[in-house]
């Protein structure tokens, strides 16, 4: 038996969750106050994922950078690979919220999308 102590990040409550694992299988989740905590804890110990937010170089816009995020969460272990693709990317203005800026970032199957509008100048 193995136990993992986690702080739930599902909401600002930050519940302290204890997960009991047996040979990689979740046996029990305790300490959470809602169902989201249970889901988070199970995922965090088996397949942790994160949303990555950053900026991308934009040309011809009223700002030099456009803010962006991965449209869905990506494996936690791939954060820096994702950043590498984001750093290398370059887009042209204009850009609208939700526009895809990088397709299938770092082979995750997840797109990077714009989180703000940038006007063309």
């Amino acid at each position: 038996m193995e136990t993992r102590e986690l702080t739930c990040i599902g909401c600002p409550m930050g519940c302290q969750i204890t997960v009991e694992l047996d040979k990689g299988e979740v046996v029990s989740v305790t300490g959470n106050t809602c169902a989201r905590g249970d889901i988070y804890a199970r995922k965090e110990v088996t397949n942790p994922t994160r949303i990555v937010t950053s900026t991308i170089v934009i040309k011809g816009g009223d700002k030099p950078r456009v803010s962006c995020k991965t449209a869905n969460d990506i494996p936690k272990g791939k954060i820096f690979e994702v950043m590498k693709d984001i750093d290398a990317a370059e887009v042209d203005a204009p850009v609208k919220i939700g526009d895809v800026l990088v397709k299938d970032v770092a082979g995750t199957g997840v797109d990077v999308i714009a989180t703000r509008n940038i006007e063309k100048v």
Partner: peptide
Amino acid sequence: ERTKGGRD
């Protein structure tokens, strides 16, 4: 320097 490897 600029972010993104110093690119403008």
